[in-house]
């Protein structure tokens, strides 16, 4: 597999304070990588850099994108709290990225239908975000991020605000979505179990400053259940953190 994105000794400082130090890793095409670490380990900084909201103080991010190599351009983000535009319907939210780049209405409509079907939300096109449950909102957010067909889907603790049961269901659905779309996913979380259930590889970060402690490959078959195999991994990761 070829590297889709590669970080070369990326560091970030807030003033004199180092939040990320010498981050080096790459993500292959179609890979699911979790960035795991306790709060304050620079996860959000790393996410903001990958999304193009922040520029690193030093280091390089090399994206072998299809269209261009502007960071953030081909990486679409799913935020922690969905952040659907509350004044737009589900349909309008999902097509937002397509409208911004000027796609024709027929193209947009077809894509919206396809994506809502993918996330299991056909029929709610004309509802407003406030009329949806938290889980549904997050699914719409995933559809919105997928709409422009990005190379990479970047997710910032997307299920952190959901209750445990719903979180498990969403995790299983994400595995499904990934299987169907073959998207490369970078998933930020502090939940060890979640990372083991989802990831091909886990980038473990340590705190202050955020540094890579270890990168582990989870060689378990999908779909993963909460069983002995998964918990062995969880135990091993707990030793690291």
């Amino acid at each position: 597999m070829s590297d889709l994105i590669r970080l070369k000794s990326v560091s970030h400082y807030y003033g004199n304070q180092c939040t990320l130090r010498e981050i080096d890793f790459s993500v292959a095409d179609g890979e699911f990588v979790c960035i795991l670490g306790p709060s304050g380990c620079g996860k959000s900084t790393l996410l903001n850099i990958l999304a193009g909201f922040l520029t690193p103080s030093s280091g390089q991010i090399i994206l072998s994108a299809r269209n261009d190599d502007v960071v953030g351009h081909d990486i679409k983000v799913v935020m922690q709290n969905a952040h659907l535009f509350p004044w737009l319907t589900v349909h309008r939210n999902v097509e937002f990225g397509l409208r911004m780049r000027g796609d024709a209405k027929e193209t947009r409509d077809a894509r919206v239908m396809e994506l809502l079907h993918l996330v299991g939300l056909s029929g709610v096109e004309s509802k407003y975000p406030a009329q949806l449950s938290g889980g549904m909102q997050q699914r719409v957010a995933i559809a919105r991020a997928l709409a422009p067909d990005p190379s990479i889907l970047l997710m910032d603790e997307p299920f952190g605000a959901l209750d445990a049961q719903l979180r498990r269901r969403m995790q299983a659905e994400l595995v499904q979505i990934r299987a169907v779309t073959g998207k490369t996913i970078i998933f930020v979380t502090h939940d060890i179990v979640e990372s083991v259930l989802l990831a091909d590889r886990i980038v473990v970060l340590t705190t202050a400053p955020g540094q890579i402690k270890k990168i582990v490959s989870v060689d378990l078959e999908h779909p993963r259940e909460r069983n002995r195999g998964v918990y062995d991994w969880v135990f091993e990761l707990e030793q690291l953190l």
Partner: peptide, 10 residues
């Protein structure tokens, strides 16, 4: 954050 989302969506 809405502005970031919009920016991210081009």
């Amino acid at each position: 954050v809405y502005l970031r989302v919009a920016k991210n969506l081009n």
